[in-house]
Amino acid sequence: MDMPESVKAYFDAERRNDPDALVAAFAAGAAVRDEGAVHEGIPAIRSWWVAAKKKTHHVTAPIEMSGSGDKVSVCALVSGDFPNSPVTLDFAFTLEQGKIVELEIG
């Protein structure tokens, strides 16, 4: 799948369980919207992701991508220690200057 570099970096870091590489894909003032909460800034995004991994031990596998330019959506299969696993979720990325500025998961 031919994804923008920062989106590819996000999913690669997810797969490797690498929080430092994951947050490196985001711009400094980025925001993540997940499960009704907003996590703004690199420290908050890192804390959100580390807590989610610890709680659910989830694995995310991209299935398909749509969009181009600064708006890209990736449909991914997410499995882990949570009810109804696995689920298919949409990861909607907004990009600026090669970095993720917004990610909405739903």
Rank of each mutant, 00 (worst) to 15 (best):
E102D: 12
V7H: 03
G36W: 12
P19L: 06
I45L: 11
P86D: 12
V32F: 08
P86H: 13
G29M: 04
K8C: 07
M65G: 10
S85T: 14
S68A: 10
K71P: 00
M3A: 12
E102F: 09
I45Q: 02
G98A: 10
A51K: 14
V78W: 01
D2A: 11
M65E: 03
I42L: 07
A30S: 14
M1F: 04
F93I: 07
I100W: 11
A27P: 08
G29Y: 07
V78C: 08
D18E: 02
F26T: 08
P83F: 11
V101W: 04
A28G: 13
E5H: 12
T60V: 15
F91S: 12
V7R: 05
T88F: 05
R46P: 10
C75H: 07
Y10H: 14
Q97L: 08
G80S: 11
E40D: 04
K71N: 02
P19H: 10
K53E: 09
E35Y: 08
P19K: 09
P83V: 07
G69D: 06
T56R: 13
E96G: 10
V23L: 06
H57K: 06
S79L: 00
G67D: 05
S6H: 05
R46L: 09
P83K: 06
P83R: 10
S66H: 00
T88G: 08
G67A: 11
W48D: 01
I63N: 00
E104S: 14
K55P: 03
K54E: 14
N17A: 11
L95P: 01
